[in-house]
Design a protein around this nucleic acid. Structure first.
Length: 167
DNA sequence: GCCAACGTTGGC
DNA sequence: GCCAACGTTGGC
């Protein structure tokens, strides 16, 4: 099965791309929306690529790329009465919520901001810029993934050792 | 902090 | 199964 592409939202004050870079990998726990859960549970596979998106912050946008490193398994926070994500209707036999895990791949040199995505003719069809949509885990078309990647990591100018790099 | 757009809940 | 009330998301 070819890799799929996703966008996953997070509030950077809760968990940012720098947190992921530090941790290496993390479980994507706490998703409590059925549509988002279904995407993770039914379609996400190890090796899929993820656009890591910062929301509810001064400059919302895609800040890096991650890779799915573990396919879906029950989210343990649903069983924990002390967790804000506790779900009294979930049981170990019949878990209701599932999570995948992701691994850090890269942080963009320049974040691809929401405004930039909205303004880019190649990206106007992306789900994340459709009005009213708020899914925290959503599929992304490969062309859109590649375009975002291109915008976030502009090809470095070849600089020879004789160039004007200053200390 | 506001509020539009959704999603969920629960009475009927 | 309808739908009003309520809760959440997330840009602004």
């Amino acid at each position: 099965m070819p890799p799929r592409y996703w966008l996953m939202k997070t509030e950077p004050h809760v968990y940012s791309i720098d947190d992921l870079a530090r941790d290496g990998s993390t479980g994507w726990e706490g998703v409590r929306n059925y549509q988002a859960r279904n995407f993770m549970r039914d379609q996400m596979q190890p090796g899929d690529r993820v656009l890591f998106y910062h929301s509810s912050c001064p400059a919302p946008g895609v800040v890096g790329v991650a890779k799915v490193s573990r396919s879906s398994h029950p989210d343990p926070t649903q069983f924990d009465p002390k967790s804000p994500c506790f779900d009294p209707k979930a049981t170990k036999d019949q878990p209701r919520w599932f999570m995948a895990a992701i691994t850090f791949e890269l942080k963009f040199q320049t974040p691809v901001l929401l405004d930039q995505i909205k303004a880019d003719p190649q990206l106007t069809a992306m789900r994340v810029v459709q009005r009213g949509q708020r899914l925290s885990v959503q599929p992304v078309e490969v062309e859109h993934f590649q375009r975002i990647h291109q915008l976030g990591r502009p090809t470095k100018k070849k600089t020879s050792s004789r160039s004007s790099k200053k200390k």
